[in-house]
C-alpha cells in the first residue's frame, strides 16, 4: 500500500504532468477558463489515461517486448489512444451530451495529448508493474485535475482584473505568466515523497 501511496503523491504533487513535466499544456491553457469545463476535461483525461495505460501496458509487455519491437511503441500507443478517445467520444455523445458539448474540440485533442501518451510511455520506462502503472495513471490524471482546477481559480481572478492588466499583457501573455508562477509554486513539493514515506 505504501508503494501505491508514494506513486500517487509523487504523480499528483511532485511530478505533476502539467506543472512539473510540462505535458498537456494545450488543454491546461485552453479549457481552464471555466471551473466546470476544466473539471469535466480533467475527468475525461483521468479516464483516458487510466484506460490507455490499461490497454497499452499489456500490448507493450505482451506483444512488443517479446518480439523486440520496442521502437513501435510510439506508433502503436498513439493508434490505441486515438481509437480509445474516439470510442469515448462516441459513448459520451450518446450518454453525456452536455459534457460532450462543453468539451467541444478539446476531447479530440486528447488523442494527441502528450500527457496521455507521456503517462503510457513513462509507465513502461519506469518499469512499473501493471497495478503500479494503473495507479500511476490515476495519480497523473488526478494531478492534471489538480492543476486544471487550481489554474481555473487563478484564471478567474485574472479575468476579474480586466482592464487593470496592462494592455500588452491582456489575454494569453498574462495567462502564461500566471501559469509559470503556479508552476514555480509546485517546485516546493520536490522531495516531499521521501520525507513523507521515510
Amino acid at each position: 500500500m505504501k508503494e501505491f501511496a508514494m506513486i500517487i503523491v509523487g504523480a499528483v504533487l511532485v511530478n505533476n504532468y502539467v506543472l512539473s513535466k510540462f505535458l498537456g499544456i494545450c488543454p491546461f491553457l485552453g479549457v481552464s477558463k471555466k471551473l466546470d469545463s476544466a473539471f469535466g476535461m480533467s475527468l475525461a483525461v483521468i479516464f483516458v489515461m487510466t484506460l490507455a495505460t490499461a490497454v497499452t501496458w499489456p500490448i507493450q509487455r505482451g506483444i512488443l517486448d517479446p518480439n523486440g519491437l520496442r521502437y513501435l511503441q510510439t506508433v502503436v500507443f498513439i493508434l490505441v489512444i486515438a481509437a480509445l478517445v474516439q470510442l469515448i467520444e462516441t459513448a459520451m455523445k450518446k450518454y453525456l451530451p452536455a459534457l460532450h458539448q462543453a468539451l467541444g474540440i478539446y476531447l479530440p485533442l486528447i488523442t494527441t495529448n502528450c500527457a496521455v501518451l507521456g503517462v503510457t510511455i513513462l509507465n513502461i520506462d519506469e518499469n512499473y508493474t501493471y497495478a503500479q502503472s494503473i495507479v500511476n495513471a490515476i495519480g497523473s490524471g488526478l494531478g492534471f485535475m489538480l492543476a486544471m482546477v487550481l489554474f481555473s481559480g487563478v484564471r478567474s481572478r485574472v479575468e476579474a482584473a480586466g482592464d487593470r492588466i496592462p494592455k500588452a499583457f491582456q489575454g494569453i501573455p498574462i495567462t502564461l505568466v500566471a501559469a509559470a508562477i503556479v508552476s514555480v509554486s509546485f517546485m516546493g513539493f520536490s522531495g516531499i515523497v521521501d520525507g513523507l514515506f521515510k
Binding site: N67, L72, V76, T90
Partner: peptide
C-alpha cells in the same frame, strides 16, 4: 502485422 492487426481490432471495435 502487429500494427495492422492492432489497427484492425481498434477499427472493428469502433
Amino acid at each position: 502485422a502487429i500494427v495492422g492487426g492492432i489497427g484492425l481490432i481498434a477499427s472493428v471495435i469502433l
